[in-house]
Design a protein around this nucleic acid. Structure first.
Lengths: 233, 233
DNA sequence: GTGTGTGAACTTGTTCACAGCG
DNA sequence: CGCTGTGAACAAGTTCACACAC
């Protein structure tokens, strides 16, 4: 239909596209219909040149002298990212985090649909969260057969994360998002991503803050842990 | 004390260090004390050369012919990342997600300490979550004065996210982690990081899955949204 | 004039391959 | 002999600067 340029988009660009998209959506909501690379760059905290290069890879959607049409750009980015169709996801582990994810608006806003919830706690099985009934994990294969699942989200306690991952792989799920604080192993052809809510992101932030000579932490109580000795040689 | 080589560590390496660290901790728990770059690389899903180069930047901690001492390496990585001291964090917004974060083990495991919780809902204020009392957001300045806060975590609904961010900046917080699905603006010297639970990560995963010629989604019901027309020229 | 689109220069990050230490 | 540590070759990503379309 729309003559899309099927070039290969660099990974670094792909990682920024959702950021642009969300900013564009907000601008649109606040009444802005046209946006320049300069403005988009400021809001996304990147350089204007980067924005222009990124967007030019999807095609020439901008208007010289004016900027980009926000609505059209949102649509083009969405198409590029595969968000122009609905992706059914399953969430395993209906605790605090699983519940928060299932109820969050974000999924639906990006055409992800929470199609199934799994948990092994008999007090939770049968409960209806955000319109979806919680089933025992043993029913995963049956559900996956009836409704092909595009992605599995693991929000279980760490000890059962690997078992759940195995079940998901067995059921044909090829993309897994792991929120459990546990390293899991899956076949090489399965896409596995970790989200560590408490650690990785913060750690990076802190390191960057400290390495850019920030003096913000100057007045803080420094409590050092006891270091280990180097291994005996 | 430990003669640390204070070289500049590349950002890409810093991003991988927490991954190595967690894997090392798990290996240690399962009884492994020494690990080769090969093994660590496989578990972290990167190349062995990368692991060696990354670790060599922190100093020469490995033993040729044998590998690395897991416990010692964990400690060295922790020191490099600034995790050898305790960082107090404040969480604003004690809903599903805020609660899940406050209760999660991960913070304490990495020397982050949930020092304060804020919410404006009178039904939530006063509640004690994971041993910390929930205060009204108006008390943020007072709390920040008494206990310097290293990081602010925003888990509020989108509409109040900007207001909370402003209050945090005002209170002297220089690192903010935003879980609210809303673009917020802070001064350039404040470190701002977005975590979009439902979107960015999944989107990337999907794009990568599709672009590597995966046939996994072949049998899925494709439901395309209605595309927009190009902007009138 | 204004702001996009893009080759060319540059910087950062990754892989290779192997010397050398334990 | 195995595995680290590292310079040197290569690839990816970013910035620059400017031609050109509106």
């Amino acid at each position: 239909m729309t003559g899309a340029p099927r070039r290969r988009i660099p990974e670094a660009t792909v990682a920024r596209l959702p950021v642009y998209q969300r900013i564009l959506e907000e601008l649109l909501r606040s009444g802005t219909t046209t946006v320049s690379s300069e403005v988009l760059a400021t809001l996304a905290r990147v350089s204007a040149a980067k924005v222009r290069k990124d967007l030019s890879l999807l095609g020439s959607f901008g208007t010289r002298g004016a900027g980009y049409d926000a609505a059209y750009l949102i649509d083009q980015i969405g198409r590029q990212l595969g968000l122009d169709r609905i992706w059914p996801v399953a969430i395993a582990g209906v605790g605090n985090l699983g519940r928060a994810l299932a109820r969050s608006e974000g999924f639906a806003a990006r055409n992800f649909c929470v199609a199934a919830l799994f948990d092994n706690d008999p007090r939770i099985v049968g409960e209806i969260v955000h319109g979806v009934v919680v089933r025992p994990t043993s029913e995963l294969p049956a559900v996956a057969t009836a409704t092909p699942l595009a992605m599995g989200v693991i929000t279980t306690p760490a000890p059962v994360a690997q078992r759940v991952a195995d079940a998901m792989v067995e059921a044909g799920i090829r993309s897994i998002l792991n929120f459990a604080p546990r390293v899991i192993e899956v076949p090489a052809d399965v896409l596995l991503r970790y989200v560590d809510l408490s650690i990785e992101l913060q750690v990076m932030s802190f390191y960057q803050a400290r390495s850019s000579e920030s003096t913000a932490m100057e007045g803080m109580p420094v409590i050092r842990s006891i270091g280990l000795s180097p291994p005996a040689s």
